[in-house]
């Protein structure tokens, strides 16, 4: 490596990277939670549709 990265720059990078990672983790979790509820909603809708279909057939 021909650049001098500077210890101060490296140190602060460790801190801001940790903050960014925290943020990225939260975003990831939010997406997972949203996906979980979306899946549940999709399953529920499918069940309701099946029930409606069954009632119509009767």
């Amino acid at each position: 490596m021909y650049l001098d990265p500077g210890f101060g720059s490296m140190l602060i990078q460790g801190i801001v990277a940790a903050l960014a990672a925290g943020g990225a983790y939260l975003i990831l979790m939010r997406k997972k939670i949203a996906a979980f509820f979306q899946n549940r909603k999709a399953v529920k809708n499918a069940e309701e549709n099946q029930q409606n279909d069954a009632e119509t057939e009767k």
Binding site: F7, A17, A20, A21, G23
Partner: peptide, 11 residues
């Protein structure tokens, strides 16, 4: 300074 790849990418 050690930074995990996940943190590096997040930064």
């Amino acid at each position: 300074v050690q930074i995990s790849k996940f943190s590096h990418i997040a930064l």
